[in-house]
Structure formats: C-alpha cells, structure tokens
C-alpha cells in the first residue's frame, strides 16, 4: 500500500459518502444517473468475485464490502425507495449502456491477464469502470444546472482513479516486476473521460459560480 493508493481509496470512499449524503439528506436523486450506479454495481460485483477466496487484508475486504454494499443500496434506493424514486430523471437518463457492457465483456474475453472465469470478469470490471461514468456525464449535460453535492460526487469519483495512476507510476518505479497494463490503460481512459468535467468544475470553482456543463 502506498500513499497514492490510500488517497485514491479514500477519495473513492468520499465520493460514495457524498452521494449517500445527497440522497439521504435531500431525499432526492435528481441529477444522478441510475445507469451509472447500475454499471458501478456490476463493476464491483465482477471485480470482487475473489472476496471470499483471496484474503489480502482486513482493509481490502472491508472496502470491497463497503463498495459492493453502497452501490447496491444506491441502486435499490433509486429504483424502489418511495420518496427518492420520484426524483429520478427517468426521461433524461436514457443511455443504452448494454452496448458498453457487451463491448467490455467481449474485450475482456480477448484481453485479460489469464483466461479464467475470475480473471475475465476482473478485466471486464476494469474496462466497464472506465466507461461507467458516461451515462452520468450525459445526464449532467442534459439536466443543465448541477447541484453542489452531485458535482462533488462526480469530481471525487474522477479524482480517485487519477490517484491510482500515480500509484501505478510509483509501483512501476519501486517494484521490479510490476506491470498492470490493463488497469493502467483503462485508468488513463477513465480519467481522460472526466477531463472536460474537471475543466468546467474548476471554472465554476474559480468563478464561485454554479457548475454549468455546455449542452
């Protein structure tokens, strides 16, 4: 474990907590893409298949449970919670994400570290996470003004993988045989997809103005 990866995991945890706060405090999920939440639930379920087979550390196991549990709880809340579900932007959140799921799974069948059930699903989860934010970014552009908590949620979600890139550089420089091309390339693509969001987020922060994404 290094400081970059810890910062990344903590930033990811913060993004989850901010989202839970927004939904719990405002009893609303307006501006949040259910599609992105469902993709993230798939990402964690596919990636943490080794939850019970490979024990890395208590920290690793606890964080996996937190990410799986929170993503499923948010999907449940947005679909079935009496009050929250009413504020879901159903007509704006129309990204046909099964295309992404199919493409990522096909890619995982071709490109993986080892051709085993667990490793193919692991690679699938890495590719899927890289594009999982797309429905959310599309929804932000369509829904115009973005409330603060939603903007902070997306910001932290994007920042966490940027910390992981620093972690991979650090491990590449300090560990003799460290090569994680699948994670690195996907992580770069994932972070790049946030580039324009980060730009508009920075502008809104500098001008102390509401976050506005161009339609």
């Amino acid at each position: 474990m290094n400081i970059f990866r810890l910062a990344g995991d903590m930033t990811h945890l913060i993004s989850v907590l901010v989202l839970l706060l927004k939904i719990y405090a405002t009893k609303s999920c307006s501006g949040i893409s259910l599609k992105t939440q469902e993709l993230y639930a798939m990402v964690f379920l596919a990636r943490y298949l080794d939850l019970f087979s490979d024990f890395i550390s208590l920290y690793n196991t606890v964080m996996k449970l937190v990410f799986i549990g929170s993503s499923l709880a948010i999907v449940w809340c947005m679909r079935y919670h009496r009050v929250v579900r009413r504020s879901y932007d159903r007509e704006l959140d129309t990204f046909r994400y099964w295309i992404l799921v199919g493409a990522c799974f096909t890619l995982a069948l071709v490109l993986h570290e080892k051709f085993s059930f667990q490793e193919v699903f692991w690679a699938f989860s890495i590719y899927l996470e890289a594009v999982a934010i797309l429905p959310q970014l599309v929804l932000l552009q369509r829904s115009g003004n973005v409330d603060n908590l939603t903007g902070q949620y997306v910001f932290f979600l994007g920042a966490y993988r940027a910390f992981y890139i620093l972690n991979w550089i650090y491990r590449y420089l300090t560990e003799p045989r460290f090569t994680r091309w699948i994670s690195c390339v996907s992580g770069l693509v994932q972070t790049a997809l946030y580039a324009d969001f980060f730009y508009y987020y920075f502008i809104s922060w500098k001008n102390n103005a509401k976050l506005q994404l161009p339609a």
Partner: peptide
C-alpha cells in the same frame, strides 16, 4: 507465487 496472481488493489 499466489500473491502475484491475487489482485491486491481495489
């Protein structure tokens, strides 16, 4: 070794 295969990152 085993730890090489197990993914130690989240």
């Amino acid at each position: 070794s085993k730890d090489d295969e197990a993914h130690d990152e989240l």
